[in-house]
Amino acid sequence: MITPRLVASRTRTSAVRTVLELDAVLDLPAEIAPDRRSRRGRATAVPVLIEVTRWHGDPLLRRHVTFDNTVRDHRLRFHAPTARAAGTWTGDGQWCLIERPVRPDLGPLPTDRGHEAVCGSAPVQSLGAVGRGTDRTAVFAPASPRCVRLPTLRRPRERSRKEIAVTLLRSVGWLFRSDLRSRTTGAGPMLATPEAQCQGPQTFDLALGNATATDADLARRAAAFRTAPRARQLRPGTTGEPSPPGTISADGALLTALKPAENRGGVILRLGNPTPAACEARLTTPTGALLLPVRLDEQPTGQQVVLQVAGESTWQLAPFDTLTLRISRRDRG
């Protein structure tokens, strides 16, 4: 494993945030050797810029990583320390949080035909977390599709390390290779993929956070980090503006979709409960709106239409459940 070496650092502080800029260098081999058993070429110095930002009032420690990928056949990962060792780690999928066992990065190599070595990493949507309650350490990394909780590592003359790793970049030149020792079965055609080497400028955004008391808090924080913030300029001394008429809002569950209905009869609101515990969703919709439970294909479920007299309603979601509603005006039905 190659780690970056620090070259320079700078800090900037304003009324709203503090930024630490780190200039580092990764000394990376140029590419894999023709025999595919080692790396070849002189080490290439690849500059890396890391911005660590703490916004005042924001519980997340944000990182923005930039570098120009000029080498091939390598993997770049971000390693974050965790508070303590654990036998499992949590990652998020499209609809739920999944608890996975901690395994080695790569298990024993198979010898029988038709087998594949166990891989400790797993695909995630935007987060990997270790621990429970306020003792939890979480890495939020949208668009970085693989994450792994590494077993406790101990190196000579080093203290044991507990960490979680997120794959930021994989530079590969083939869709599949039959000479891979980690599998004795096929996984697609041996097709060269030169553009998958991901050459050129690369940027990554991720954050570290803790003290998320519940799984619901963890899922909401991940969803908020996946969504780009919007700012609105206000006059000095004001604290905000009231929601305009016709606003739709949800609390207590994750908002996964808000879109026009396919039949143009209102809008579709979809909520999800990604946790193993039941939850209660609280909706605010325009007074007089009709709420019709529908399936994922937007066809009615057969449940009764709810007329929003007061503009607020509550809905029960079972563990790992979804709720889809078609919201329309009363005159449309």
Rank of each mutant, 00 (worst) to 15 (best):
S171H: 03
T82G: 02
R159K: 04
G87K: 00
P156F: 13
P104R: 05
A83P: 11
A86L: 02
G120F: 02
A138K: 11
R75K: 04
H79M: 08
T134G: 13
V130E: 05
A165D: 05
D73R: 01
S144N: 13
R159N: 13
E163K: 11
P108V: 02
A80F: 03
A122I: 14
L76Y: 10
K162D: 15
A83Y: 15
L169V: 06
A143E: 09
G120C: 02
F140A: 00
P104S: 06
F78N: 00
T167H: 07
G93S: 12
R84E: 11
C147T: 10
G107M: 06
V166Q: 11
V118M: 06
S121H: 13
G128C: 12
E116V: 11
P151D: 04
P110E: 08
S171D: 08
R157K: 11
P151A: 07
G131W: 09
R84G: 07
I98V: 14
V102D: 08
P142V: 04
T134Q: 05
F78V: 00
S171G: 13
C119G: 08
C96S: 15
Q94S: 15
Q125I: 03
L76D: 01
T134E: 06
W89M: 01
G128P: 04
W95E: 15
R161I: 02
G128T: 04
D135V: 01
E116S: 10
V166T: 06
L150N: 13
G131K: 12
D112M: 05
V102M: 06
H115T: 10
P151M: 07
G114P: 10
P101K: 08
L150C: 11
T82S: 01
L153S: 12
G87W: 01
V166R: 05
P142I: 03
A141C: 10
T167F: 01
V124D: 13
A80N: 00
S144C: 15
R136C: 01
G107P: 10
P104E: 03
P123K: 11
D73C: 00
V118F: 02
P156G: 01
G131Q: 10
H74D: 01
P145Q: 08
I98M: 07
V124K: 15
R100V: 11
P156Q: 07
R146S: 14
P101Y: 00
R155S: 09
E158V: 06
V139C: 03
R103F: 12
L127C: 07
